[in-house]
Nucleic acid binder design. Structure first.
Length: 789
RNA sequence: GGGCGAGUAGCUCAGCUGGUCAGAGCGCGCGGUUCACAUCCGCGAGGUCGUAGGUUCAAGUCCUAUCUCGCCCACCA
C-alpha cells in the first residue's frame, strides 16, 4: 500500500490518478520506482556491515516467490481454508481498498455523542445515542439488552426511522450494554462490526449507504451524493429541526484509521477473500507452548498467545494494483471460479473461454508469511529447502510480531509441517531524541547512511546494541554515538601502540599462554581477566543479552586492558631486558587479538582492519575461531587488584594534598604475599602511581624535580624530595612559553580577517584558548609564589 | 475493558533466573604539554533504586496495593 501511495502521489503532481493512466501503465511505474529505490535498503545493510549471503537476495515479487504464493493460495483454497465471502471489513475511502484489522489503528480522540429520538409506531419514542449520526440512514433495527427492564415492554414493537421513515423492529440482544448511552442502540449492520453481528443473529437487512469514496449512495435519500461528514452535518440539522435531537455530549472515541494514510476507515460490507485462521492458529500456538519455538524476550510469548487465541479470519484481498494478483478466474458463462497455479485458458467447470482474473491483489503479508520457505525454492523440494528449513533465529521488531512472525509460523507449519524457526528474537524500536517512533510519514527518520558518514558504522552498531536491553525501545542520541566513536578510536590507538612495539619478524609463541615462561603478576592478571571476559561474553551472547556482552568487552578493553595493562607494560617495553620485553609483547598481542574476536560482531570494520596489521593465524578476523575461555588464575587476579587499589590510593593522595606531596609511610605498611607482590612490581607501582624509585629516576633524563621519589623500601617508606631551584627554572620557562601563546592568541583575535573558513569558528576557539591560557598563567604565578616561600 | 513495559546519580539508560554492585556513558568539579590516544589520562561530587506494605537470615532484583508515563489488544454504539 505504501509503495502504491508513493507512486500515486507522484502522479497526483501531474493531476493524474492511477485510473487515468490505467492498470498496465501504472504497474510499469511501480516497477520503475522499485528499480530505483529497491536497492537502497540493501545498500544501507551493506554499509552497516550486515554479513549476509547476498547471492540469496530475494524480492517478494520475484518469479520463484510468486510461484510459491500461488501454490500456497491454491493449497489453502482446496483445503477450504481460503474462502470468498461477504463480510464487514475496514474500508479506506482514500486508498480505496479493504484493510485487515491489523492495518487499522485505533486512537482515542475527542468526539461527540448524539442523542436521537426514534418515534414509536404506537406513539412515544425510544432514544438512542450514536457517534456517527449519518449511519442512521442504514439502520434496520433498534436493540436493547434483554434484561433491561426499562425497555422490556418495547421488545418486538416497531420504531419509525427518522427522515427516511423506515419501519424498523426493536429487538433484544446481549451485545447491548445497558450502561452506555440510553441503553438502546441503533443497529446499522452495513456499517458497524458489532451491528453486523447483531444483524446476523436477528436476520436483519443489511443496507449499504455509501459509495466506495464514502459519499452517500441512493440509500442516503435526500443526502445522496454528499460526503459522509457533510451528510452528517446536514442530517443533524434536520433532526434538530424536527425536534428529534435531544442533546449532544462530548465523548472520547477511538475510530479506526488507515495505517498508511490516517483516513478514517469506514466499516462496510463487501465481498472479499479470507483465510480461515483458527485451524492454522492452533498448531502455531502449540508450537510455542511446547517449546519448539522460543520467543525472546519472554514476555512477548503471552502477547502472542493472547492474539492467536482471539484471532479472527484474515481478510487477504486488497483493491490495489501493486502486489500478487489473486489466482482466481471467473467465468462469464457459468459464473464458476477457476483457482489455479498457472494462468488457465478456460473455465474448469464449463470450458468457457470468457474468463477474467480477479482484479484484486493479496495482502503483502500473505506472501511475506511464506518467506522462510518460498525463498528456498518451495514448492520444489530443493536442497536449500532441506538444508535450511527450519532456520535457527528470526530477528525482527516487536511491532510486526502479528503481521509477520505469527503468519510465518502459521503458514510455515501448514505448508512445511514444521516450525519455520526455533527462536524469535524481538528487538525494540528506534525513536528520535524526543522518544517518538521513527517513521517516514513523520519525517523524523535518521538515515543510517548519514549516521555512518558522520560516526562510522561501528559506532552506530555499537550504540544500537549496547544502548538498551532486549525488546526495549531506544532513543538515538548524538552523545551516545560520540562515545561509541571514541571507543572505536581507543581500540585503534591500542592497536597502534601494540604494533608500534613489535619487531619486523614477530611471531606469537605457541602453547598455552598460561604456560609461557617469565610471566609476571600483571600478565597472569590480564590473562585471568581476559579468560573471564571470554566466557562471560560467550554466555551473554548465547542467551541473547547482546547489549550486556558489548558492555563487558568495552569495560575490559578500555578499563582494564588499556588503562592498566598497557600502561604497566611500558615499564618493560621501554627499558628492560629483551626477555622481559618479549613477554610483555606476547601477552599484549595474545590478549588483544582474542579481545578483537569478541568485539568483531559489534565493530566489524575497525577490528578487521586492525587484524590485518597484527600477526594473525588466519586471513580474516571474520572467520577466526571464537575464543575458548582458558583457566582463571584467581590468585593473581585478587593480588593484582589489590595493588591497583594501592596505586589509586597514591593518586588520591596526590590529588587531595597537591603536588609535590609527602606520602606517609604508615599507609603502605603491608606484609606477606602482598608485600612480596609489591616488591616484585616496584617498577609498575612507581610508573602507574607516578612515584618513581630513585634508581629509575636517575636513569631518566627528563625526570622532573616535581616528581616524588621513593626512597628506601618501597612498601614502607615513600618520601618526596623536591629540588626547589630546578622547579623554579622549569616554572619560569613555562611562564615564558605561555606569554608567547597569549600574545599570539590576542593577535589572532584582533584580526578577524585572518580567519577564512567557517566565519567565527576559529575566532571562538582562539577566545576559548585565551581564557584557558590566562587561567593557567594565574596558577603558575601561585605556584611560583609558594615555591619562593 | 484486558494485558504489557517503564519509573535507578543533573541527563540517557545497564543491572540475566533474589545475598561484591548501587553501576556506565554524557554532563559537572579539580588536576594533567610524560614518545598509543586531548576522539586522551588521573581524581572527585551526585541516588533511602516511584510510593506504601509484605515474604526472607538477605530485595532495584519476589508478592500485594497504589501513583505517573508509554505501548499493545478489544465489536462499547
Amino acid at each position: 500500500i505504501s509503495t502504491q501511495n508513493v507512486v500515486e502521489k507522484e502522479l497526483a503532481k501531474q493531476g493524474l490518478t492511477r485510473h487515468d493512466v490505467g492498470r498496465e501503465k501504472f504497474e510499469e511505474k511501480l516497477w520503475e520506482w522499485r528499480e530505483e529505490y529497491g536497492g537502497i535498503i540493501t545498500h544501507q545493510l551493506r554499509r552497516l556491515g550486515a554479513s549476509c549471503d547476498w547471492t540469496r537476495e530475494r524480492f517478494t515479487l520475484d518469479e520463484g516467490l510468486s510461484r510459491a504464493v500461488r501454490e500456497a493460495f491454491v493449497n489453502l483454497y482446496r483445503k477450504g481454508l481460503i474462502y470468498r465471502g461477504e463480510y464487514i471489513i475496514n474500508w479506506c475511502p482514500r486508498c480505496q481498498t479493504a484493510l485487515s484489522d491489523l492495518e487499522t489503528l485505533h486512537e482515542e480522540e475527542p468526539s461527540k455523542l448524539w442523542y436521537v429520538r426514534y418515534p414509536l409506531e404506537e406513539g412515544g419514542y425510544i432514544e438512542v445515542a450514536t457517534t456517527r449520526p449519518e449511519t442512521i440512514l442504514g439502520d434496520t433495527a433498534v436493540a436493547v439488552n434483554p434484561y433491561d427492564k426499562r425497555y422490556s415492554h418495547l421488545i418486538g414493537k416497531t420504531a419509525i426511522l427518522p427522515v427516511l421513515e423506515r419501519r424498523i423492529p426493536i429487538i433484544a440482544d446481549e451485545a447491548v450494554d445497558p450502561e452506555f448511552g440510553t441503553g438502546a442502540v441503533k443497529v446499522t449492520p452495513g456499517h458497524d462490526p458489532t451491528d453486523y453481528e447483531i444483524g446476523l443473529r436477528h436476520g436483519l437487512e443489511i443496507i449499504n449507504i455509501m459509495n466506495l469514496d464514502a459519499t452517500l449512495n441512493g440509500e442516503g435519500g435526500p443526502y445522496e451524493g454528499m460526503d459522509r461528514y457533510e451528510a452528517r452535518e446536514k442530517l443533524v440539522g434536520d433532526l434538530r429541526e424536527q425536534g428529534l435531537l435531544t442533546r449532544i455530549v462530548p465523548h472520547q472515541h477511538a475510530p479506526g484509521r488507515c495505517q498508511r494514510c490516517q483516513t478514517m476507515v469506514e466499516p462496510m460490507v463487501s465481498e472479499q477473500w479470507f483465510v480461515k485462521i483458527k485451524p492454522l492458529a492452533e498448531p502455531a500456538i502449540e508450537a510455542v507452548r511446547d517449546g519448539r519455538i522460543t520467543i525472546i524476550p519472554d514476555r512477548f510469548t503471552k502477547v502472542y498467545y493472547n492474539w492467536m487465541e482471539n484471532i479472527r479470519d484474515w481478510c487477504i484481498s486488497r483493491q490495489l494494483w501493486w502486489g500478487h494478483r489473486i489466482p482466481v478466474w471467473y467465468c462469464d458463462d457459468c459464473h464458476g471460479k477457476t483457482v489455479a497455479t498457472v494462468d488457465p485458458e478456460e473455465c474448469e467447470h464449463c470450458g468457457g473461454k470468457d474468463i477474467r482474473q480477479d482484479p484484486d491483489v493479496l495482502d503483502t503479508w500473505f506472501s511475506s508469511g511464506l518467506w522462510p520457505f518460498s525463498t528456498l525454492g518451495w514448492p520444489d523440494n530443493t536442497e536449500d529447502l532441506r538444508y535450511f528449513y527450519p532456520t535457527s533465529v528470526m530477528e525482527t521488531g516487536y511491532d510486526i510480531l502479528f503481521f509477520w512472525v505469527a503468519r510465518m509460523i502459521m503458514l510455515g507449519m501448514e505448508h512445511m509441517g514444521e516450525v519455520p524457526f526455533r527462536v524469535v528474537y524481538l528487538h525494540g524500536l528506534m525513536r528520535d531524541e524526543f522518544g517518538v517512533k521513527m517513521s517516514k510519514s513523520k519525517g523524523n527518520v535518521a538515515d543510517p547512511l548519514d549516521v555512518v558518514a558522520e560516526y562510522g558504522a561501528d559506532s552506530l552498531r555499537f550504540t544500537i546494541i549496547t544502548g538498551s536491553s532486549p525488546g526495549e525501545d531506544m532513543k538515538l542520541y548524538e552523545e551516545k554515538l560520540e562515545s561509541s566513536r571514541n571507543f572505536a578510536n581507543k581500540i585503534w590507538q591500542m592497536a597502534r601502540f601494540i604494533t608500534g612495539n613489535l619487531p619486523e619478524d614477530y611471531h606469537l609463541p605457541s602453547g598455552e599462554p598460561g604456560e609461557w615462561p617469565h610471566l609476571r603478576l600483571e600478565d597472569r592478571w590480564i590473562l585471568a581477566r581476559h579468560n573471564r571476559v571470554v566466557s562471560e561474553v560467550t554466555r551473554l551472547l548465547d542467551s541473547y543479552q547482546f547489549g550486556e556482552a558489548g558492555k563487558q568487552i568495552y569495560e575490559f578493553l578500555w578499563g582494564e586492558f588499556a588503562d592498566w595493562f598497557i600502561e604497566a607494560s611500558k615499564v618493560r617495553l621501554y627499558g628492560e631486558s629483551e626477555e622481559a620485553q618479549r613477554t610483555a609483547r606476547d601477552v599484549l598481542v595474545y590478549v588483544f587479538g582474542r579481545a578483537l574476536r569478541l568485539l568483531h560482531p559489534f565493530m566489524p570494520f575497525v577490528t578487521e582492519e586492525i587484524w590485518q596489521h597484527l600477526p594473525r593465524e588466519c586471513q580474516s578476523l571474520m572467520v577466526a575461531p571464537w575464543p575458548e575461555p582458558g583457566p582463571v588464575d584467581e590468585e593473581a587476579e585478587a593480588l593484582q587488584e589489590e595493588i591497583w587499589e594501592h596505586i589509586r590510593d597514591i593518586r588520591n593522595r596526590r590529588a587531595e594534598e597537591g603536588w609535590p606531596v609527602e606520602v606517609r609511610p604508615a599507609a603502605y605498611t603491608v606484609a606477606g604475599e602482598l608485600r612480596e607482590a609489591l616488591e616484585s612490581q616496584r617498577d609498575v607501582f612507581a610508573w602507574l602511581g607516578r612515584v618513581e624509585p630513585r634508581e629509575i629516576a636517575a636513569q631518566r633524563e627528563q625526570s622532573r624535580a616535581g616528581s616524588a621519589v621513593v626512597t628506601g623500601r618501597l612498601a614502607t617508606t615513600l618520601v618526596v624530595e623536591v629540588d626547589v631551584e630546578k622547579e623554579r627554572q622549569r616554572l619560569e620557562q613555562e611562564m615564558t612559553n605561555l606569554e608567547g601563546e597569549i600574545a599570539r592568541a590576542e593577535q589572532l583575535l584582533a584580526n578577524e580577517g585572518f580567519v577564512s573558513k567557517a566565519p567565527g569558528e576559529v575566532v571562538c576557539r582562539e577566545r576559548d584558548k585565551l581564557a584557558r591560557y590566562q587561567k593557567e598563567r594565574q596558577k603558575l604565578e601561585e605556584r611560583l609564589a609558594s615555591l619562593a616561600r
